[in-house]
Design a protein around this nucleic acid. Structure first.
Lengths: 191, 191
DNA sequence: CCGAATTATTTTAAGCTTAAAATATCTGCG
DNA sequence: CGCAGATATTTTAAGCTTAAAATAATTCGG
């Protein structure tokens, strides 16, 4: 564990206010050092896990993470989802979903049909092949995540869930001022 | 806070062994439920912050996150870095760096020159314009991160650092068995 | 019923990203 | 020296991603 420097950050901050105190003594130039280190660590961990999962999905199932994510959404909605539903649930752009669905249809893993009652929409769902393929992947995926976090105790996991929840609320509040903090939030698809 | 379901996960796991116990009573089918929820939350938080930063960098400085990251590396190495150095520090592919540098050179923010003593390599460094531009961005970036984590106490941050460090070790061990856990690790560039 | 505003989706243009193959150069060994 | 293997970088092919503009269909108020 070390952090080695990084984070796109420099010591350049500390504007106005805290002028001539040396780095040790600096009172409150507010350079957000601790927060930057936290962000860096969060990012590193997430990237590490994400690329591991990505690489295993590619190597063992020849599938990309976004495709896995999309299939995961469909698996939970046997009746099918519209492209808009997928876009919202996966938290990605509509155009992105258009392309993903296109490619999955070509692979025979999902199918599109006109949505009854709204000629603008299409319903997307897993084909039998898509469903069975997804089940195998989901099983392996669960095991991989279990392995990656294997050294954490149950208490560590609880603590992390609580603290990350707090961080999420903080970030959401800062990112989107029009939100009453205690609403029913969504997490994006996969991993 | 809720997690809403998600995670690319289903209850399909629990193979063999735990056969007919209902979901409440299930003893140890090992479906890694807690770990999956943790991963989902980690991913959501990181994505949330990352897209906020990305959007602000684009909106206020008309720069992409990868470009900001690359410039951040150069800012810390006034003597310049080779493309290989950049690739390793940013933890991205070599081909990726080639393209990023190309575009930054076109924008006049960085410059390339042959590396003395090795005709295969090139040294990349910030131009004066790149350097001053980066300083403004870095300052704003620090403030944004500070805002996004504003609701966390100092203790929360400490706790998170410690737990994420533990998670990082766990993930690294699982991802790359050839590693003695206590080495000097790097965090990638930024966010 | 009509048209304005909204919603669903696609298209476009640009950039990011990777793995793998291709180049070019360097290094060390015999 | 001379070449085999290692390194540094670029190229290629494919896919992901987004914002913004363009289409198409629906809804709603009058």
């Amino acid at each position: 564990m070390d952090e080695s420097g990084n984070g796109g950050m420099t010591e350049s901050g500390a504007d106005a206010a805290a002028i001539l105190l040396d780095a040790e003594t600096r009172v409150h130039g507010d350079d957000h050092r601790a927060e930057l280190r936290l962000w860096l660590r969060l990012l590193t961990l997430t990237n590490l896990i994400e690329s591991e999962i990505r690489s295993r999905l590619r190597g063992e199932f020849d599938v990309t993470l976004p495709r896995f994510d999309l299939m995961a959404q469909l698996e939970k909605a046997p009746e099918g989802l519209t492209l808009g539903d997928l876009s919202r649930r996966m938290m990605v752009s509509a155009g992105n979903v258009t392309g993903l669905v296109e490619r999955l249809v070509q692979d025979g893993l999902v199918e599109r049909r006109p949505a009854p009652g709204d000629r603008r929409s299409a319903l997307v769902s897993l084909t039998p092949e898509g469903r069975s393929g997804f089940e195998a992947m989901a099983h392996a995926h669960g095991d991989w995540i279990g392995d990656l976090f294997a050294d954490l105790s149950d208490a560590d996991i609880d603590d992390l869930m609580r603290l990350l929840g707090r961080a999420k609320t903080s970030a959401r509040t800062a990112a989107d001022p029009t939100r009453t903090t205690t609403s029913t939030d969504k997490e994006p698809s996969n991993g």
